Computed example of a mutant assay.
Amino acid sequence: MVLVVGLGCLLLALALGVVALVLKPPVTAAGSLALIETSYSAAVVSKQEVGASPSWLRSIALRLSPAGVAVRLQRRLDLAGNPPSWTTDRVLAAKGLGLFLGAGLAALLTFRSPGWLVLGLAAGAVSGFFLPDLLLVNAGQKRQEKIRRALPDALDMLTVCVEAGLGFDASLAQVARNTTGPLAQECARVLQEMQIGKSRSEALRSLTERTTVAELRAFVSALAQAGELGVPIASVLREQAREMRIRRRQRAEEQAQKVPVKILFPLIVCLFPAMFVVIIGPGAISIARVLMHL
């Protein structure tokens, strides 16, 4: 009973520690639009005002990490939307905390066997150390997938607004105001960067550095080339929107083609054994009775 209670306390402490150091509050498009009139430096200052993490945990994580870990973490934070409560220092502190909590949990589970104790300490420490990285990568992948799914509809709205007579900046503001999700936040940030003095091409190219969506990168590249060559932006938007709809349909068809393969393994593992028991079971019982009688 004591071991079970101790194990539960350690699991709860690990979960609360990671949640307190890593998880972010939800960021809405309205909040992003409120930042359009402010500078990005003000956002960075407010980000730095979040409660500081223990420096000794960060130093331990830095010593155990390869060179350039801060740059890679910042890149992952950009892909995850650069949320206010996630900073490189806090992620490093979470890695250090996970190191000790994982090792402690493994020691509690394997303290009776000295041989397994060393292996458990190593496995628990490594698992706890890389848990914040996994959470960060997972958040970035989910956000990029949301951007990919919202891009065709956002381009349709952008095309309609431009063809209705609005300028590109005003159309982008309409997209940011009337849609939700990470893409609306990115549009709001592009407008914000243009407000503080960046050119349109520079703000759009900065957007490509914060995403891994190939379709969005191609769209930004087409807009930049259209601006340099003097091509009407409405025709470029119309062609890009049509291409995005085609790609969305192709992705849906690709996912549909994967369904039979994905269903095969659950059928083999779950359905076929039950069918064998029902179909072959009576015959096997009859054969066993005949053989035993003989």
Rank of each mutant, 00 (worst) to 15 (best):
A94T: 07
E243D: 07
R245W: 00
G8W: 07
A164F: 10
G283P: 03
A241R: 03
R248E: 15
V220A: 06
K47D: 00
E186M: 01
A61W: 05
V91G: 07
L131N: 04
R242Q: 13
T180N: 12
L10H: 07
V69T: 14
L158M: 13
L23P: 07
V278D: 05
L135Q: 13
Q48S: 03
Q74G: 06
N178W: 10
D153Q: 14
A80E: 05
V5G: 12
G281Y: 04
T38V: 10
G81T: 01
L99G: 03
P26M: 03
L135Y: 11
A234D: 15
R217P: 00
L151P: 02
M292F: 07
V277S: 03
A222C: 05
T180W: 04
E37C: 07
V91A: 12
E186R: 02
I147L: 12
T87D: 05
Q257R: 15
V5P: 04
R289C: 02
L166Q: 13
L23D: 11
E254H: 04
V4F: 14
G281T: 04
D89Y: 01
G227L: 10
L267K: 00
L77H: 04
L35T: 08
Q250H: 07
L109K: 03
G120L: 02
A122V: 15
E253A: 12
K262G: 08
I147D: 05
Q192W: 07
D156R: 02
L223P: 08
E243Y: 00
V290R: 09
P66Y: 00
V22W: 08
G167N: 10
I196Y: 13
G120W: 01
G51F: 01
L14M: 11
